[in-house]
Design a protein around this nucleic acid. Structure first.
Lengths: 149, 149
DNA sequence: CTGCGATAATTGTATATACAAGCATCTGCC
DNA sequence: GGCAGATGCTTGTATATACAATTATCGCAG
C-alpha cells in the first residue's frame, strides 16, 4: 500500500515548478540580454517593441492582455522606450487611452537587432532542447486561452 | 527548393523563446505568490528558504550557483529575510563568507506554507500540462549542468 | 613576511515587476 | 443633462533582478 506522501523540504526543492521556471527564465533572459546589449536593448523591452510592431497601433490594455503584464509595469516600460525614441504616442478618440506605435528609430532598432535575436534564439533552443521549446508553445497558448476567459 | 527564411517581426512575436518563457514565468509566479500571500511570503524568497533548509548552512555563492542568481540579488533578498526573522547569520571560518541558515521561525513558516504551496503547485501543473512539467525538469537539469562546466 | 591576484560579499544604479490607490474619462440610466 | 459605476492609465511603494564598482579577506609566490 502506498502511503500518502508527505511534502518535505527536499521534495519542494526538487519539484517546485515555479522554482524551475524562474531559474530557466533568469538564464534565458540573460542569453537574450547579452546578445542585445550592443543595441542598448533588453529582451523585456524587445518583446514589447515587437508586439507593438505587429499591432501597428497598440493600446496598453491590449499589450498587457497579450503579454500578461500588469498595466503599471507596461506604463513605465513604455515611458522608458518613449524617452529612447523607439515609441511614440498616438492621439486617440478615447481620452482615457494612450495608444502608441513604433517610431522610425524603433523599427530600425528592431531590424538591426534581429541577427542578435536569432543568435540568442539558437542558443536558447540548444540549451533547452527542441522538445521543451515546442511544448513551450503549447503551454503558452494554454495560458493565454485560460486568461482570455 | 526552400528559401532561407527571413525573420520578420511577426515570426519573432510568434516564436521568441524568451518571450514565452517570461510570460509563463509571470503567470506562474503570480499563482504561487497569490497562494503564499497570507504568509507574507513570495515564491522568490520561498525558493531561497527551501534551498537553505535543504543545505542546512548555506553560503551565498553556493545558493547562487544552485539558483543561477546574481550574488547581489541574493544579498538583498537574504537581508530582507533576515529582517523578517526567517534567516540568521552563521559565523564561519572564512571571514569573507557570510553563511546563513533557517531560524526556528523560518522553519515554522515553511511548514505552515506547505499546503498553500501544494495548491499552487497543483494549479500550475494543471495549467501547464504534465508533459511540460516533466520536460521542465529535464531542461532545468541541462541548464544546471551547462553552468557547472 | 609582504604584496598581488583571486575570491566573497556589499553597495550604487537601473530596469522589471506587481499591488494598491488615485485620477480622468466614458457610458448608460434616469 | 447629470450622476454612478466602469474603464484606462498613472503614481506610490516594495521586491526582484543584474551589472559595475568597491571593500574585505584569503592564499600563495617570492
Amino acid at each position: 500500500m502506498m502511503e500518502k506522501p508527505v511534502t518535505s523540504i527536499d521534495t519542494i526543492a526538487k519539484t517546485c515548478i515555479a522554482g524551475r521556471l524562474r531559474l530557466l527564465n533568469r538564464v534565458v533572459t540573460g542569453i537574450y540580454d547579452d546578445a542585445l546589449r550592443p543595441f542598448g536593448l533588453k529582451i523585456s523591452q524587445g518583446n514589447i517593441l515587437i508586439l507593438t510592431g505587429k499591432l501597428g497601433v497598440a493600446s496598453p490594455v491590449q499589450v498587457c492582455d497579450y503579454l500578461q503584464l500588469d498595466i503599471s509595469t507596461l506604463s513605465r516600460n513604455v515611458e522608458l522606450m518613449r524617452k529612447n525614441g523607439w515609441l511614440e504616442d498616438v492621439p486617440g478618440e478615447d481620452a482615457r487611452s494612450h495608444p502608441f506605435r513604433l517610431t522610425a528609430a524603433g523599427k530600425k532598432l528592431i531590424e538591426k537587432a534581429i541577427p542578435a535575436w536569432e543568435q540568442a534564439q539558437a542558443e536558447a533552443r540548444k540549451l533547452l532542447g527542441e522538445e521543451f521549446v515546442s511544448l513551450l508553445n503549447t503551454a503558452a497558448k494554454r495560458v493565454s486561452e485560460a486568461n482570455r476567459r
